[in-house]
Design a protein around this nucleic acid. Structure first.
Lengths: 333, 333
DNA sequence: ACTTAATATGGGAACGATCCCACAACAAAT
DNA sequence: ATTTGTTGTGGGATCGTTCCCATATTAAGT
């Protein structure tokens, strides 16, 4: 069992108040006593209990991060991993400790345990159900959402400017001379995938009314599904002579690209491929993937800064925090 | 501020003891009182404070996970991400909450805060310095290391059977007919990279004394360094006519493969490429990468199970837990 | 009628810190 | 000589639970 302040006081021969004063550095302490206390503290490797301290100070300095996923990967997901990395770094720099948890579907169990742990704020990552949001709201605790799918105007939300990004992708591909597009869109209930698609479509229409575009919805925005979807539509794909393929995220784009390579379709010679997100692997792939970069590190960092402001009850500017996305041109186009 | 048990007791008109009994479900409580208490609890969304509970029960049900990295990626690293995923899932299933932190170099600050938080056990991930290990030891708390680099026999350690894996790789490539190898090895101070290399080399020597093998050490086991190292040795590489390239991890193998593809070297036609780890991207790459699979999910899961045993002071079998690695044959060989 | 047991409830100590308050000792200022 | 201020220390309430113990009521067994 860990030592406590009383034990230290006993060994030094002073009261626990004095020990407390030495450790916290506030209040008067004589140099000799201070030294004796510190030497015993060092010797026994005494660390004051954050649990007891939280009890009296009514502050835990803990924040909770919950990632909503129905299956693996959780943190090994290229986007969420990046976000968690930056949350970790920012939180530690600001003096918060982070509880990390994952919940599936509409489970509330992680929320419950976070509340019991008395976290001071909550960061909800990924697409969580509305019932979870309603539940979290009831606890009157600062929270915010990253990469979610809600239209609830009450919820502070950190997302990329998906529609704008889709539009960037459209302009770029159009400008390269492409006029017929095969588009792989993520699940329709996904806010960001929808917006990316809409931005792409509307931008195209604005530029040219005679664009050929075939849109397919993937049940999941994964590598495997990107691959499979293109495989299922292969005959049509080849028959129609599409010159460009746009997917609403990199994973699906990579999946499609993998199939194209296996079937020896030159990229970008015969078909240009473009994704969205700029995950780590996009640059590594061969050919490297042209994409729309979303700065998830910045999003994660800013989310922590904002949560801190909410915790400190400082003024916040806006509920919806949108991040500009930027075109990254690589080998696949 | 969150409600407390006294507030609930006051509203129901009973003592806090009674409320406590209703919530914990132990001791006698009359049905009517129970119902009244539960309805107020539900109405106010009261959650008992785990902080106060930890105070009296002397158990926090928290474990700490510290990832030692000098730079990003932390959790977005393909291996550590996988490990953290499985730790999260296992820990939650066993009733533990997890604090996640990261430390650089020989910093002790995460250890300190974990001790203050009174975590019941610690999982140390990645290559941490010996001074950190010595520091952790002093606290007399269950801890174990995953994917580390220590030779300290005292430290419970979870690693893959790297030497065996290197040997598998050697046999496989030899059996394919390769006799001259270009090897990219990770940093020499890395235990696992060293063992992988040694297993590869010694196995080769055992099979055939006339093997040509050029070994290069990369300062970092990353994609970029794999790429760069091959680029620097390019003339030699091409001149010598190596038919196989083995890297001691997938990231470096992929980096090298990327360069080979950019320079239009057919894989595996002219050069076969093999990695180690079987990270997610190995299968996605085109061509997909032949590698030695390390089951990091299992390692993470088992580490939690073991930590739980250490916490419960149950008997543990061995300090060193090694996981067999298995050959995964794909397109790159 | 009287012990015994089961059911039901409340009071209060304990966990390990913080922090306010009381009190001493001593110096400096009136 | 008395007040005031500074320095240094200790006592004890407090935070929100759990859990032991005391007490009360009712039912059952002798």
């Amino acid at each position: 069992m860990a030592y406590n302040i009383k034990e230290i006081a006993l060994r030094v021969g002073v009261s626990k108040s004095t020990v407390s004063r030495v450790i916290s550095g506030k209040g008067y302490t004589s140099p000799e006593v201070r030294e004796r206390v510190l030497s015993v503290v060092e010797e026994l490797k005494y660390k004051p209990s954050a649990v007891a301290r939280a009890m009296v100070s009514q502050r835990t300095n803990n924040i909770g991060v919950i990632i909503y996923r129905d299956q693996q990967p959780i943190v090994s997901h290229p986007i969420y991993g990046k976000i968690v990395d930056s949350i970790l770094v920012a939180a530690q720099a600001m003096g918060y400790s982070v509880y990390l948890a994952t919940d599936r579907g509409m489970s509330l169990s992680s929320t419950d345990f976070m509340m019991e742990k008395r976290v001071e704020g909550l960061i909800l990552i990924s697409r969580l159900r509305q019932n979870v949001i309603e539940y979290v709201k009831k606890f009157n605790i600062p929270y915010l959402m990253v990469n979610g799918s809600t239209d609830d105007p009450e919820v502070m939300h950190f997302v990329s400017m998906d529609e704008e990004g889709g539009s960037h992708a459209a302009s770029y591909l159009y400008q390269l001379g492409h006029r017929n597009f095969f588009v792989i869109a993520g699940p329709q209930e996904h806010r960001s995938h929808n917006l990316r698609l809409r931005g792409f479509q509307e931008s195209m229409e604005r530029m040219d009314e005679n664009i050929e575009m075939s849109v397919y919805y993937s049940p999941e925005s994964s590598f495997e599904q990107g691959y499979r979807l293109l495989e299922e539509q292969w005959d049509y794909f080849i028959g129609q002579g599409f010159t460009a393929l746009f997917a609403t995220n990199d994973m699906m784009a990579l999946g499609a690209m993998k199939l194209l390579q296996q079937r020896s379709v030159p990229i970008p010679g015969q078909v240009a491929v473009m994704g969205f997100d700029d995950i780590e692997y996009a640059a590594m792939y061969s050919p490297s993937l042209t994409t729309i970069k979303v700065d998830n590190s910045k999003i994660g960092h800013d989310a922590v800064v904002m949560l801190d402001r909410l915790i400190k009850q400082e003024k916040v500017l806006s509920k919806l925090n949108e991040y500009t996305s930027e075109l990254v041109i690589r080998e696949s186009t």
